[in-house]
Amino acid sequence: MPNLMPRQPKNIVILISGSGSNMAAIVRAAQAQHWQQQFGAHVAAVISNRPDAAGLQLAQSLGVATQVLSHQAFATREAFDAALMALIDTHQPALVVLAGFMRILTPAFVQHYAGRLVNIHPSLLPAFPGLNTHQRALDAGCTEAGCTVHQVTAELDHGPMLAQAAVPVLPGDSADTLAARVQMQEHLLYPQAIRDWLRSAACR
C-alpha cells in the first residue's frame, strides 16, 4: 500500500481577529477528513492580534494551540508584522491562512509568505474588493453574490483566485441577511480550497 504521507509535515497557521468561524470550519474539516493522514497536514496554531478574540477559546476547545500578539504593543505596522512573522515562523508553516484577520499586511510580510498565504473575501472577486461588500452588491443591483478564496499579494484582494462559491441575492435581502448566507458558503469553500491546495502540494 503506498505511503500517502509527504516527506515534510505541512503545518498550517491560521490568523484571526474575531469569532473565528472560518477558522473553526477549517479545523473541523482537517480533523474529520484526516488531513494529517492524507497530507501530513494539521493546524499547528491559531494566532490573534486581539487578546479578547472569541476565536481563541473556540480554537482551544478544538484542541489547537493559540497565541496572541497584540498589534497595539507596536509603534508601527512594520514592527508588528516583523514580530508576527517571527512568531509564525516558529511553526515552520507550509500555509498561512487569514481567517477574519483584520489587518492590512505590509509588502514585506506578503513577500515573505508568497505562494503560501491565502485569504477568503466575501465577494465574487474581482467585484467589490475591500470593505462593505454585501451592501455594495445590493446597491449595484447584483443578482448573485458570494465568496472567493485567493492567494494574497501586495495588491489588496487581487491575488490569484483558488476557488469561488456563489449565492443568489434574494428579494428583500439586507446586507446582514446576505452576509449570513455568504458565510455559510465560506465555511464550506475555505476548507475545500485548502484541502485542494494540500493535495496539489503533495503532488509537487
Score class of each variant (00 low, 15 high):
Ile194Asp: 03
Arg136Asn: 14
Ala137Arg: 03
Leu188Asp: 04
Ala94Gly: 12
Arg50Leu: 04
Leu105Val: 00
Pro126Thr: 06
Phe109Cys: 01
Lys10Asp: 00
Leu58Asp: 07
Ala59His: 13
Thr66Met: 05
Ala137Phe: 05
Gly55Gln: 07
Pro6His: 12
Pro9Asp: 09
Arg195Glu: 14
Ala29Thr: 13
Val118Arg: 01
Val149Ala: 15
Ala65Thr: 14
Gln38Tyr: 02
Ile194Lys: 05
Asp196Phe: 04
Ala145Pro: 02
Pro168Ile: 13
Val118Gly: 02
Ile120Asn: 01
Met5Asn: 09
Pro171Phe: 10
Ala180His: 13
Gly20Val: 08
Val110Glu: 00
Ile12Met: 14
Gly141Ile: 08
Ala137Pro: 02
Val13Pro: 01
Trp35Glu: 09
Arg136Gly: 07
Arg28Asn: 08
Asp157Asn: 09
Thr133Cys: 13
Ala108Ser: 14
Pro160Asn: 10
Asp89Ala: 13
Gln67Tyr: 08
Phe39Gln: 09
Ala41Glu: 08
Gly159Lys: 00
Gly100Lys: 05
Met1Val: 12
Ala54Asp: 11
Gln185Ile: 06
Pro9Val: 06
Leu15Ile: 05
Gln8Cys: 07
Val43Asn: 10
Val96Trp: 04
Ala137Gly: 11
Ser200Asp: 13
Pro126Asp: 03
Asp173Cys: 08
Glu155Trp: 00
His150Val: 03
Gln185Tyr: 06
Leu56Trp: 08
Pro160Cys: 06
Pro191Val: 12
His34Gln: 15
Pro51Thr: 06
Pro129Thr: 04
Met85Pro: 00
His158Ala: 15
Asn132Met: 10
Ala137Thr: 10
Cys147Leu: 09
Leu62Val: 09
Ala175Glu: 13
Thr148Gln: 09
Trp197Asn: 02
Pro129Cys: 05
Asp176Ile: 13
Asp81Leu: 02
Ala53Pro: 09
Leu15Lys: 03
Leu188Cys: 12
Gly115Ala: 04
Gln33His: 15
Gly141Pro: 04
Val97Lys: 02
Ala45Asp: 02
Pro168Met: 11
Arg103Asp: 00
Ala53Ile: 09
Asn3Gln: 10
Tyr190Phe: 15
Leu131Gln: 11
Pro191Glu: 10
Ala53Trp: 06
Phe74Pro: 01
His91Ser: 13
His112Arg: 15
Ala75Met: 08
Gly146Thr: 07
Gln60Leu: 11
His187Tyr: 15
Gly146Val: 05
Arg204Asp: 14
Gln185Thr: 03
His187Gln: 15
Leu162Phe: 06
Arg116Leu: 03
Val27Ser: 09
Ser61Gly: 15
Glu155Ser: 10
Ala202Pro: 01
Thr76Arg: 01
Ala73His: 12
Ala53Arg: 08
Asp196Pro: 01
Ala25Gln: 10
Ile104Gln: 08
Pro93Phe: 06
Ala24Asp: 11
Arg7Ala: 11
Ser48Gly: 05
Ala145Ser: 15
Leu62Glu: 12
Ala75Arg: 12
Asp139Ser: 15
Glu155Tyr: 00
Val167Trp: 08
Leu95Asn: 02
Ala201Asn: 08
Met85Glu: 09
Val96Glu: 04
Ala180Ser: 14
